[in-house]
Design a protein around this nucleic acid. Structure first.
Lengths: 395, 395
DNA sequence: CGACTTGTGTCGAATATCAAACAAAAGTCG
DNA sequence: CGACTTTTGTTTGATATTCGACACAAGTCG
């Protein structure tokens, strides 16, 4: 069906719908836009004027002529506004300014303990936001929204942490409210693994709509993107695979109070502990990675076994959510391909052919940046939504 | 925010948006509708006229007067049109006519082998549809859409089965195309477990947006509703938990060619097989259920163990999708509470507190009807979608 | 029983979109 | 080098839709 002559209904609210088409940054001519939207060329002209007025789009030279007058093209102006994304980890925090295309303009990373409590940590976020904006030569009026990733469960709708184990003082804290009071822009808050999933998907797999991101670091968690949407679950704790029991874990105690959790066997600290028990001189995961780099067989074996353990859980995940890509990220993945090899070994062997036929399991390509990128994308998703654009143009 | 004076943008295309509000069947007054949509009362009047014209809604007496003229109320007219839902199992088929509220008007169940191939089975569907319509006193013009559930993986977007193991001749068959040619209405096709999940959610848990439906019968599968949406995954095989390995299954061969699958240990045939091996005189799952009803300890123990096995897998599922309800259905659940008890035992013990705090695990209340109901709901979801209403009113 | 309150239908005004006509730009061809 | 072609960009009147206000209807309350 090519639009059956669209008779009666006038059309859509404002310029927001047109803008959604241009969000991808690809330049388009007016004719193209009229064609895809079904609107009259004249209407397109008016809408484009409104968007140009707002500064959200800009003319991009001319297109190729096909025998007549060459068309002028328009595209999202990435530099029109900015968003800020903050990844607040247990001991370190990263903050970044991104343009409307999601490209990171500036980053800043610093030691900062989440346990210092929301006021101090968020004050740092606000201060850094202000100074990054100055550094980027932007006024605070250019800031559209802030995305925040926290190392614990978050109720995304309200932006409040829910019983976070390692974030004393944060339980139920109104993060968006606090940030709005300080910066005057909305804040979107989510679990750190979820924003990494968003970051990885937007940066490395924009065409993939079913992706599972697994973070293996001090803890183990995952973010699920299914049908193009991040899945959060009833309490926002979807993807929490760290405390699933695995076979090999029998009898091993986990910090959570249970026994045999994946996290107690395959997380960074767990791998280090196991190697220590075997007599290796390792303190942290960094030491383990160092050993692996030096081709220490014992360390390689331990990492690979951790991969198998994770694979055991991922096998069920693959059957359940049927993703087309699994991305492994987190500090432990810096130990080279060994973790990945362990995961693949188990997943490809155990899962059903239908689910694994088109499944690829890869290492995170964005590495440490996945989280901040995801935080920025989260902010952008909100700030460039039809409703938000509508509000901007209604002003 | 209570709608900040909606200044410029005119509004929406047609009456379809108003209709979405009325889909729930609750009667509403014009004032209520104007209030929730933000449209002018006069506009509401016009829209209602259009919907009344189409026959989709009807006036429902008067509301309570609050001191002045009593308002007239309008609600969805469930009897305006009908949909048909068909649940095609391995050996039996059920078909039903439902009104727009999703209430089943007529049902018909018959022995029918899916292995007879698509032409014969779908011919039966079409013939039964026609005769049920006659029996219900409806013309075929009243039929809006058909929903179909099939016992195997289906690519929902195209309605074609994908490598179904027990459906010879169906691979890649264009089910919606065939039905459209015969009946002139669109058909929506999905996996049987998925439609059971939809049916259960719509009938028993309309307020729950994160629900996991687990069918335990000849096979074991699940349907995931997350964020109110059915999750289908990259290839449409999401929820396929039958071939996840469980601990107890070590060494037990499964039909799928692998070892230790959940289905090989906890499905109906598997339970019967295990009891036979212990010397019990059981042939089918029905025999097992009979034994359980007579309080045979061995049978009860077997069923409960199956519950534990399923629970082992569901523990991971709970961590992954964080549902607020798990519903158990399928023939094996007719063995009373024992299966449920086994599932609960394991899930509540192993999962993280955050995920289980608000989790209830219950037995299917719609029993055998979940599937046909789901098929009807699937058809309704399509037939009452804004686009479909738009098309109806554009005619 | 009358004043008041609340809901319903109609009408003109404002707005927005459409379609088509019109003007402009740039390349092609003789 | 100029006329033609092709496509783009803009303007204009027609159409449709929504809004707000007003008049009327149908109850309640004193």
């Amino acid at each position: 069906m090519v639009a059956p002559k669209k008779p009666g209904p006038p059309g859509l609210s404002g310029a927001s719908e047109l803008f959604q088409l241009l969000r991808d940054g690809r330049p388009r001519t007016r004719a193209e836009l009229a064609d895809t939207t079904g609107l009259a060329r004249s209407t397109i002209g008016l809408r484009l004027d409104a968007l140009l007025e707002l500064g959200l789009i800009r003319p991009i030279g001319e297109g190729a002529s096909s025998g007549g007058r060459p068309p002028s093209q328009f595209a999202l102006d990435p530099a029109a506004r900015v968003v800020v994304g903050a990844d607040l980890g247990a001991t370190h925090a990263t903050i970044a300014v991104a343009d409307l295309s999601g490209a990171i303009l500036l980053t800043h990373r610093e030691a900062l303990a989440i346990a210092d409590g929301p006021e101090r940590v968020l004050t740092w976020v606000v201060d850094e936001t202000r100074s990054l904006l100055v550094e980027a030569g932007r006024s605070s009026a250019d800031l559209l929204a802030v995305g925040v990733g926290l190392p614990g469960p978050v109720e995304h709708d309200t932006g409040r942490p829910v019983n976070p184990p390692i974030m004393p003082g944060w339980d139920g804290f109104d993060v968006p409210g606090w940030i709005f009071d300080a910066l005057g822009v909305p804040a979107l808050v989510d679990n750190d693994v979820n924003i990494m999933a968003i970051g990885e998907q937007s940066r490395s797999f924009p065409e993939v709509s079913d992706l599972l991101f697994v973070k293996v670091a001090t803890g183990i968690g995952s973010g699920i993107i299914s049908g193009g949407l991040l899945q959060r679950g009833a309490q926002g704790s979807a993807g929490d695979i760290g405390h699933v029991r695995i076979e090999r874990g029998k009898g091993v105690a986990c910090d959570c109070g249970n026994f045999g959790c994946l996290e107690a066997m395959a997380s960074g600290p767990a791998i280090a502990r196991q190697l220590r028990a075997e007599g290796a001189d390792v303190e942290t995961m960094s030491d383990v990675i160092e050993l692996v780099r030096r081709n220490d067989l014992r360390a390689i074996r331990a990492v690979r076994q951790a991969g198998r353990d994770i694979g055991e859980v991922l096998t069920t995940c693959v059957s359940l959510v049927n993703p087309s890509v699994i991305v492994l990220g987190g500090s432990v993945t810096r130990a080279g391909e060994h973790l990945l090899a362990g995961v693949r070994e188990v997943v490809y062997q155990s899962s059903t052919p239908l689910a694994t036929e088109h499944l690829s399991i890869v290492q995170s390509r964005t590495a440490e940046n996945a989280a901040v990128i995801g935080a920025c994308i989260l902010a952008l998703q909100y700030a460039l939504s039809p409703q938000a654009i509508e509000r901007m143009s209604a002003r």
